[in-house]
Design a protein around this nucleic acid. Structure first.
Lengths: 154, 154, 154, 154
DNA sequence: TTTT
DNA sequence: TTTT
């Protein structure tokens, strides 16, 4: 069915990425990303409103996030919206929405890694192959296929 | 600050829009929108995964949604992600994510209004003026300014 | 360097795709796509303005376009802008801008193939792997690598 | 008709904006914007390919570009593709494609104005009201309506 | 003509 | 919890 689920964000990391390396070698990184807009309220006061997004990146992109992306930095992200369902401790159905990124570009080198990275690193343009995300028909033999398993905790 | 929060969706309405007319004459419409992707799982089976998005539209766009958009129809939506915080009955902090649409285009005439609408209606291209959403500096006198109040239930 | 070149179009094909199969088996399809907007001019008259885009699709996506996409149909396209330079017969530098699509979704079944395609075909969601478009590092041995050669006529 | 014509670019200005103030007080700014992608060619060499886009901004956004945007800077742009037709001196039909921006955000302060602008200026987030671009139904009396006239040179 |  |  004709369907599109696309998100484009430019914002700043609220924390360093948290990276987990799953069995099979697959990496997952997560970090909060702030976007903000400012507008005038009814009384004419300028107000800043910040939106927080839970970003998730997988595999190679997660490894890059782990190495080059830090709290405070500005990044461009392209991805899709994903809402996970879970039961809370009282058995209530809960929802948690995140952005699964398949492209990430570092826009500015700020935050806690000023000492280190090179211009080359800062400008890394990274795109998750959609082949890996969906069909995987062209994935070479020997490559772990259990990316983004449905039974992962989130 | 350099910030972008943009969502583009093509999907189908899960229900007819629910419209409320607020004091001041402002209309709000809400409806669930499904996007789906199909991929092969580890065993090579084709799997269809559906994502549900809570769409919110305001003012003129809400009135158009009320008139011309129905369950089952396919629409194109452009908007932004917004996560609302609230307390549940046990006092726990909860989050609810929705898509605030500022553009909506009807892609296909399906669902419950087969009898009625014309091609003109079906192809309505609707864009929320960003002037109204933010600065409102150019809004003519007499127009209600209490759009999208922060104290609304959601 | 932080760089993004992204185009999103929804429009109708002005002609059937023209497909060429290059040496090496690579397919290229081209077709014109119309987007239109309507607005009121200074005298209050409603005016419709149509924009024509030259769409190019490569490889598997070209083959799909050849099979399932026809004049008159409405499609969603995601891609990038590419401007080619060439000399005209008088030796003047000329520019030709096209949209290289890496994703294509059929939104409506119109045009010359009413008799044939199934719902499955009409709703084909097709995404060009960015791996193939750029690095090709994961391309399996034996696959032609000369996709999108720079010396192609356009 | 259901139609979308959307462009999203992040790139660097090749030159300072050229601004013209039309009769009626409407401003137009133009500048070239480079986006680049790097990929490996058939021989495994890393190649950088730069795409140049002709950006056009109108009215308030043009004035902002005039004040705050300079050669070398990185900007985010959202807009639409527009191809203008004209006759060259030999009477041949020619086409010129440009991006009409309705949103512009400065991502990095580089280039020729290092001495001057403030952080506030550098982070200007600017969005063209779509009301002004199309219907103008809500434009206050006394405002020049001849924005983006069709008879402009380009 | 930019940037890395 | 970021940034301006």
């Amino acid at each position: 069915m004709a369907s599109v689920n696309k998100v484009i964000l430019i914002g700043n990391l609220g924390k360093d990425p948290e990276v987990r390396h799953l069995e099979g070698g697959v990496a997952v990184a997560r970090f909060p990303l702030a976007t903000s807009e400012s507008y005038k309220d009814k009384s004419g006061q300028r107000v800043e409103k910040t939106e927080w997004h839970n970003i998730v990146v997988w595999r190679g992109l997660a490894e890059v996030a782990e190495k080059y992306v830090r709290k405070g930095q500005s990044v461009f992200i392209e991805g899709k919206i994903r809402t996970n369902q879970y039961q809370d401790k009282d058995g209530n159905q809960r929802y948690s929405t995140e952005i699964v990124a398949d492209s990430l570009e570092i826009l500015s080198p700020k935050g806690s890694n000023e000492g280190g990275n090179t211009a080359e690193q800062q400008s890394a343009a990274l795109h998750q192959s959609s082949t890996h995300q969906t069909g995987k028909t062209s994935a070479p033999a020997g490559v772990a296929q259990n990316d983004e398993p449905d039974d992962l905790p989130f």
